[in-house]
Design a protein around this nucleic acid. Structure first.
Lengths: 110, 110
DNA sequence: TTGCAATATGGCTAAATTGCCAAATAGTAA
DNA sequence: TTACTATTTGGCAATTTAGCCATATTGCAA
């Protein structure tokens, strides 16, 4: 792969990889609704606080979220709302897959 | 996390994870332009043919590409063009990150 | 049939990711 | 100051991923 292209795809992959986790997708979706502090997200996800904190740092490092410290709490917001449009495309893939699975089942049962 | 939600985010994450690799992003972009056989993609990427084959099987398994065998060759096509719209959003993130980096540099040099 | 080309699969090691616990840090409040 | 809460960081073990080589498999052609 040409070197400039490689760099470009690596940069993209880094961002997409940051999204590629169930908990981080939940975080993205909830932050799209409104800002949340770490404790709130931790409760929604149901994992250790340190785990959630690491997820948030991955999202922040990719430039997908912003953080805003207010006293003891740190509020996170979604930095790039256009991400949410992508989710409907992903849902399209999921339902296309499901339809295809159904078609295969129907066909093979006769 | 509630169980139905968890399943949904896992399904999404599986698809996004399938995209989250530089070589697979190149494949997606090239297949968006036009169909390609494995050999062509292998040459573009510059990795072992078996490696590229595995990338393709990951994409296929996620429902992102279709394959069509014609004689000795297997042609792959992009199954979900809406994915490409997402790339411009990813590029937005990248340039926003770059701008922010610049701002930080300027500020700290005085 | 044999031989060759294209692609896929198995196996292996190295590297990255995940998630928990424990400990550090930062902020508030007494 | 001490105590308490929120969040982050370090460390570790388990799992997953990546990429190469070697080996199937498939299809064409002689």
């Amino acid at each position: 792969m040409k070197n400039t292209l490689k760099t470009r795809y690596e940069a993209r992959a880094k961002i997409i990889k940051a999204m590629a986790h169930p908990s981080r997708l939940l975080i993205i979706e909830e932050l799209n609704r409104k800002e949340h502090c770490v404790g709130e997200l931790t409760e929604m996800i149901g994992a250790d606080a340190s785990t959630v904190s690491k997820h948030l740092s991955i999202l922040k490092n990719a430039g997908l979220v912003n953080d805003d410290k207010r006293g003891n709490l740190i509020f996170y917001t979604l930095r790039v709302p256009c991400i949410m449009q992508f989710m409907s495309c992903v849902e399209d893939v999921i339902s296309a897959n499901a339809r295809q699975q159904n078609a295969i089942l129907k066909c093979c049962r006769g």
